[in-house]
């Protein structure tokens, strides 16, 4: 990741400072504070109900913040009708269209509302990008994947500087997901992308920056590389013949913090690899357990995520 330091020189397209939101007595967001540099792809991670959608709706002016300021492209966001929506594109988690329209008619409606010039050409471009045909078929008969593609077409129609996607890949099959991620990645540099997901491998694949939302707070927000450095403890992964042996292995390795999952045992470590590895091997030999494989690996984003939300306290913004 060559990004990182270089990015801070670029202006931030989106900033949230001390944003709070409660629904009744439930505090959904407490003091959320982060910014996204222009041109980056920002993965927004959190469990269901962590407040990802709420944060996005606040940025779009669809919900009203209780406190705090949000700016998009330097302009503050207002609830209701916000001017900042002119430079924003939004793909809701389940985009809803008018089933009685054809995709061309729908995009034409959107284009007229945003007031873009050369509508016909832009619509043709967009349909081409998402591989939908400009024929007489009404949206009513579209599959989920086709609707998602039309959704991205309408979100990108006005050449937004900031594209916000709410769980864009959760409903797609693996092939569709792959395609969609490549499309998002191709926007890198020209359009800033903020997308939420609970599929961490998606974030790992395309984003430069990650924000981890938990308990209404942003627990971490940094480049992937920095997150790895900060939270990702290296580990040794042992593969055993069966789950039973893995269980026994886990017991044998105590007091090392071994985690057993099916027939695999992972042992995170802090000192040098050799020290821990020798300790593990010695214990295994003593107990007479033979692993099928032993690997040294760095932590996955999933483990970082668990580490971060396990910590529970707000961590630095780099």
């Amino acid at each position: 990741m060559s990004l990182g330091e270089g990015m801070s020189a670029v202006a931030d397209i989106l900033t949230l400072s001390h944003v709070q939101k409660a629904f009744g007595s439930k505090h959904v967001l407490q003091d959320v504070d982060f910014s996204i540099p222009q041109g980056s792809i920002f993965g927004f991670v959190g469990e269901n109900g962590a407040g990802k959608t709420t944060t996005m709706k606040l940025i779009l002016g669809l919900e009203k913040a209780d406190a705090g300021v949000i700016t998009v492209g330097g302009q503050p966001v207002h609830f209701g009708a916000t001017k900042t929506n002119r430079i924003t594109g939004y793909l809701p988690d389940v985009p809803a269209f008018y089933g009685y329209m054809t995709p061309v008619e729908y995009l034409d409606l959107c284009a007229r509302i945003t007031g873009i010039s050369q509508r016909q050409r832009r619509i043709a471009e967009m349909l081409d990008l998402v591989q939908l045909k400009a024929d007489k078929h009404r949206i009513r008969g579209f599959s989920r994947g086709m609707k998602q593609r039309l959704g991205i077409a309408q979100a990108l129609l006005n050449r937004p500087q900031l594209l916000i996607c709410d769980e864009p890949t959760s409903a797609l099959d693996p092939a569709g997901r792959n395609e969609f991620l490549e499309l998002l990645a191709s926007l890198r540099g020209q359009t800033t992308v903020l997308f939420s997901t609970h599929i961490l491998s998606d974030v790992e694949r395309i984003s430069d920056r990650v924000g981890i939302l938990h308990d209404g707070r942003l627990q971490a927000c940094d480049t992937l590389a920095n997150l790895h450095q900060q939270f990702g403890r290296p580990q040794i992964k042992l593969t055993l013949p069966d789950a039973q042996t893995a269980q026994r292995c886990g017991q044998v390795l105590r007091p090392l913090p071994a985690q057993v999952q099916a027939n695999q045992v992972t042992v995170p470590y802090q000192e040098a690899y050799e020290t821990t590895a020798q300790q593990v091997l010695r214990a295994l030999v003593t107990a007479g357990i033979t692993p099928i494989a032993l690997q040294q690996q760095s932590a996955t984003l999933e483990q970082i995520f668990l580490e971060v939300i396990g910590n529970g306290h707000t961590t630095n913004h780099a």
């Binding site: 669809l62 929506n85 269209f97 509302i113 309408q154």
Partner: peptide
């Protein structure tokens, strides 16, 4: 109930 206005309002359509 269907959420069909979301796309339009986030494009700047006054309510």
């Amino acid at each position: 109930s269907r959420g069909t206005l979301v796309n339009l309002v986030t494009k700047g359509l006054p309510r």
